[in-house]
Design a protein around this nucleic acid. Structure first.
Lengths: 251, 251
DNA sequence: TCCATCAAGATTGTTGACAATCTATTCATT
DNA sequence: AATGAATAGATTGTCAACAATCTTGATGGA
């Protein structure tokens, strides 16, 4: 059996089939494990999720797993088909376009709100965040940098003070890795935090329109990069996909 | 509570405790029954939903009910507390404000998209819808009119061609009745479809900015009306709930 | 009268087993 | 060899019973 794509969280023992450490946390544990696996590009879209495997991994019952899968399905991260089970969601190019469009318009609105309401505490949070992000980039810690790069957009949403919009942004960001599976370890030339730095500067000046414009440009750049990745993946048909480690379980 | 707030759908027999007409539809039936009950103002926020009651009503097992409640919780319509069960969600004034804000910004973006992409077929759908809505209003069929009034905003979202944004708008609209429980049967002076008519006209002209402006004004009017309702409800009932914590979201 | 304590009932949470369905392999036929 | 049917295995869907927890009402004392 291949390596599990799910990462064991500190403080939690790995799957011990006998130990039924169930509880309200079990469902949450499965959800966050799958989310982390998706965000870390350790699990491919289309991978089938088998209830009993997840159950034994998480040391939970199938009921908890089912609840977790329902939660993930609502967040758009897994697809459920009756009698056929759950798979990691696959986004068609059309869906990818819609997700980017949604991010562009919602984040533009959020940035406009933040530009009008940002206080000193928020400005400090933004500054500290940008520092942390650029430090991670310069140190070459790409995994952490990618994580922080996603977190930036979430932080801006949080600064708007609107939990509803923040939840939408979080869902959209979590689906991002599903759009560009191949972009795993490649160092993106657009994912640097210069764009984030400029957006934060515009926010600090109270210029919401400019911040929104920069963010839109930033996201369009990401989308363009994604499309070229997808195209190049098409021409190198089977080799690339089979060569990557995380494949659907052989089972 | 002697009378059930849930309306029996045509084609489905009422609860027959012995008949276990379960299936994949059972969950869906419960979900839509609760949604309809909320939309029809037949069930109050804070009402406790007891699994066994719902199960016997829907002729389904508790498992299906549980799944349905989870779905409703994800949509923000019910709140689940561990070991305490499910209640119809209650929105604090702060949450209500956030929901209106989210609707304003998302629908503005949607209107801008529609204004740039509307074709003849879409224009025809809008026209037909406005006719149907105004007919319902003039005939005094207020329940249908309220339904269509909500549907108008959903139709505009659908015309944008973006399923992601449409889903967000749908969730927000479905939560609307939770914000203004007291406004049940009252004929609102702002809920007429003149506003919708003007928005549709602006869309037909391709003037997205004006459509968004009109829609924002429309929603702010609704929110103001809601606040006066809530204030008058406070003086009659007296007990007002403190700020509720927002529901937990998937990580 | 008010408050703490406690017991009985009610409700949710969990488990395991069973039925229904799908999937993959095998095997017969053309 | 290719195709289609049948069978065995695997997986999901469902259910009823049991355990854990909460709620309600009563009881007794200050």
């Amino acid at each position: 059996m291949s390596e599990s794509p799910f990462r064991v969280r500190p403080g939690h023992a790995a799957a011990t089939p006998g130990a039924s450490m169930s509880g309200p946390e079990a469902e949450e544990r499965v959800v966050s494990a799958v989310v982390e696996a998706i965000l870390g590009h350790r699990i491919a879209p289309g991978t089938r999720l088998i209830e009993r495997e997840l159950a034994s991994y998480a040391g939970a019952s199938r009921s908890a797993i089912r609840n977790g899968l329902l939660t993930l399905a609502h967040a758009g991260l897994v697809e459920l088909s009756p009698n056929k089970g759950a798979t990691i969601a696959m986004c068609s190019p059309g869906e990818a376009r819609q997700i980017f469009e949604a991010r562009i318009v919602i984040e533009a609105a959020v940035l406009d709100i933040v530009a009008h309401t940002l206080n000193d505490a928020g400005r400090a949070r933004l500054d500290a965040f940008i520092d942390e992000e650029s430090t991670a980039y310069e140190a070459g810690r790409m995994e952490e940098a990618r994580h922080l790069s996603r977190r930036f957009h979430l932080l801006v949403a949080e600064l708007s003070g609107n939990d509803v919009l923040t939840g939408f942004v979080r869902d959209l960001i979590n689906r991002q890795p599903l759009l560009s599976w191949t972009r795993e370890a490649r160092k993106s030339r657009f994912c640097g935090n210069e764009a984030h730095q400029r957006i934060a500067d515009a926010l600090a000046r109270g210029d919401g329109a400019e911040a929104a414009r920069l963010n839109t440009e930033h996201l369009r750049e990401l989308e363009r990069e994604l499309r070229t990745d997808r195209d190049s993946a098409i021409k190198s048909v089977g080799g690339d996909e089979a060569g990557q480690d995380p494949r659907p379980r052989p089972a």
